[in-house]
Computed example of a mutant assay.
Amino acid sequence: MIVLLPPSETKRTGGDGPPLRLDTLSSPALTPLRQSLVDELVELAGDPPACRTALGLSAGQDAEIERNAALWRAPTMPAIERYTGVLYDALDVGSLRGAAVARARARLAVGSALFGLLRADDEVPAYRLSASSKLPGQPGLVKRWRPLLEPVLADLAAGELIVDLRSGSYAGLGRVAGAVRVQVLAEHPDGHRTVVSHFNKAHKGQLARALVSSRAEPNDAAAVATVARRAGMTVERVGDELTVVVPAG
C-alpha cells in the first residue's frame, strides 16, 4: 500500500543532507522534467517581480525566492520531514516508534509540483512551487507533468494499492486509476453534511497515520476503511470512494 499525500506550501528550512542530486531520487523517469523545473526556478529567482507573479508571492515572501535561488546548493532532508502544516502535524511522523517508522518510510509518498512524486526518504531542499503555478514561457504544470507522471503512477498502482489523499490540483498532475480516494464531510445536528475545508487536512493526516501505524496490509478500499475504523474514525465506503464523517463545529 502507498499513501499518496499532498505537499504543503510551508516547508522546514535547513537539513543535514547533501545538495540536491536528482539521480538519487526515486522514479528516475521523472528526472528530465525535474531538471528543467529546478533550472527554471533558479533562473526565475533572479527576477524577483516575475518570480512573485509566477508563484503568487507577495513582497513579504521574498525568502521563498531565495530558497528557489539556492535549489542546487541548499541542504536536503527526507521529503517526509521537509513538509509541514496541518496534515503533517496530524500525521506526526516524528512521534512514530518501532516498526511503524519503517512502515511510514515504505508506505508514504508525496505528490510534488517540482518533483512529481517523492517517496518518504527522497532527499530534497526547501522550495516554492505549487500545482497552479505557471512558469514564464512554459505550459501549465498539468500539461507538463501528466504525460510523465501518469505512467509512473500506473506502474506503482499495478503492484500496490494507492490511497490517494492529494488535493484536486495535485491529483490533476497525474491521475491514478483504481486508487482509493477520500473525502471529509462534516455532519450537522440536523443530519445534513458539508465539505470540511481547513480541517480536511487534519483528518487526512490522521488517516495517513492510522494506515502507517497498522500492521495490516490493505489491498482494497474496504480494508482501508477497516483500518480507519479501528483507529476510531467514522468512515463510509462506496466502491473505491471513502468518506470520513466528522461532527460539525
Rank of each mutant, 00 (worst) to 15 (best):
R193L: 01
L30A: 00
V176M: 02
I80T: 03
R237E: 14
A208Y: 12
G140A: 09
G85A: 11
E40L: 12
S27K: 00
G60Y: 09
A179L: 12
G159W: 01
A216R: 14
R21I: 02
V93W: 09
V195Y: 13
A109T: 08
F115E: 00
G172E: 08
A50C: 06
E150L: 07
R215W: 01
D220G: 13
S214Q: 04
A106S: 15
G232K: 09
E160K: 07
G116S: 11
A177H: 10
T31N: 13
R21V: 12
G159Y: 01
D190M: 13
L71V: 05
G94V: 10
D155H: 09
G174F: 07
R209L: 11
T234Y: 06
V244Q: 05
V246Y: 03
Y170G: 13
R230P: 00
K201L: 13
K201F: 12
V184C: 11
V180N: 08
A106C: 02
L25W: 04
T76R: 01
V152W: 06
L71F: 03
V180P: 10
V196N: 00
R52H: 13
A79Q: 05
E217L: 13
W145C: 01
E160D: 10
L161V: 13
T194Y: 02
L4S: 06
L156P: 06
A69Q: 12
L22S: 07
L87P: 04
A225M: 10
L156W: 01
R215K: 05
L153V: 05
K204P: 11
P218E: 04
S95G: 07
L114N: 04
G159T: 15
A79C: 08
D164W: 07
P247R: 10
L71Y: 03
S132G: 14
A248W: 14
R97K: 14
